[in-house]
């Protein structure tokens, strides 16, 4: 295989993986930006979205609609969690917020076990999605799911970009992320902004969950954990709390993981996750504000 084609193939893999990380990381950053909260339960919205899509699909609903259902139920779950668990502890110590979200993770994952058992379920995808493209005699291949992932991520991120730069609500969300009290003083309804932030973040996670399941072919209650941790890494690489940073971090991380597997000695491949988290720790130590974040320092 020619090196050029090999690299092209890896770039395709990296973009596809990076899209998923970016989708999840942006949600983490939205919530962290506005609430200063490290939301460990964010990954579980992927699981909720995927199981919702699975259940809706099992009822004979076409994939397009079950995908939308996964997004909607992911978003709804996020909003409910905010209302029931996070709002009562809002303003408490960092650790209290973090532990509350850890408890929510525990509850949601065990709810998943209660409803679906802890073993993986097959995630069927429709025929039109179950195909792949081949170029240069099969030296470059990618699946329809890859294409769908990149396209839907592009659409979602464009909508988000429009929202946070062109609408009062989106500007307000950025304003509240910067200075909650000043946002209050100009008359922004901060509760409403927080609900919208959770709906958006969790909807994105729901979408990522369905796409993740479509790629992996299976769903299970613990499926959100690894992507969540990866999203943390992505968000911190880019600058925690920054939307553009999460986007950048997501794609960088996707590229990096593909690079580790494709170009480093194969003995290192199984240690990919360990390497990624070493990178996280390195960033926390040497560049806690990430690559993009400039306007506000992270307190250490």
């Amino acid at each position: 295989m020619s090196p050029g084609l090999y690299i092209a193939q890896q770039i395709i893999n990296g973009v596809s993986l990076g899209s998923l990380y970016a989708l999840v990381a942006i949600g983490l950053s939205l919530v962290f930006g506005i609430l200063r909260m490290t939301n460990f339960a964010h990954g579980d919205m992927m699981m909720v979205g995927a199981f919702a899509a699975l259940t809706i699909g099992a009822a004979g609903v076409p994939f397009e609609w079950s995908l939308l259902g996964g997004i909607a139920i992911g978003a709804l779950t996020g909003v409910i969690v905010e209302r029931v668990a996070y709002r009562p502890v809002r303003g408490a110590a960092d650790v209290t917020l973090l532990l509350t979200s850890l408890a929510v993770t525990y509850i949601l994952e065990n709810l998943g076990i209660l409803l679906f058992t802890s073993s993986p379920h097959d995630f069927p995808i429709p025929e039109w999605l179950d195909s792949s493209y081949e170029f240069s005699d099969g030296q470059i291949t990618f699946t329809q799911v890859n294409v769908l992932t990149v396209v839907l991520t592009g659409i979602s991120l464009s909508l988000l970009g429009w929202f946070v730069t062109r609408t009062d609500m989106g500007l307000g969300m950025r304003a509240a992320a910067e200075d909650m009290q000043a946002a209050n003083l100009v008359g922004l309804d901060v509760n409403k902004l927080i609900v919208i932030a959770f709906a958006l973040a969790s909807g994105f996670a729901g979408l990522a969950g369905v796409l993740w399941a479509a790629q992996a072919g299976v769903v299970e209650p613990s499926m959100g954990f690894t992507p969540l941790l990866k999203a943390f890494v992505a968000a911190i690489i880019g600058g925690f709390g920054s939307i553009a940073g999460a986007l950048l971090g997501g794609y960088l991380l996707g590229a990096l993981e593909v690079f580790i597997v494709a170009f480093l000695p194969s003995e290192l491949s199984p240690y990919r996750d360990a390497l990624v988290f070493s990178l996280l720790i390195a960033f926390l130590l040497f560049r806690p504000n990430g690559l993009l974040r400039t306007s506000r320092e992270v307190k250490l």
Binding site: L171, R174, A175, E178, D179, A182, L185
Partner: peptide, 11 residues
């Protein structure tokens, strides 16, 4: 108009 101005610096 609060003390310390508190404009939204990123906007």
């Amino acid at each position: 108009s609060p003390e310390g101005r508190r404009v939204f610096g990123n906007l």
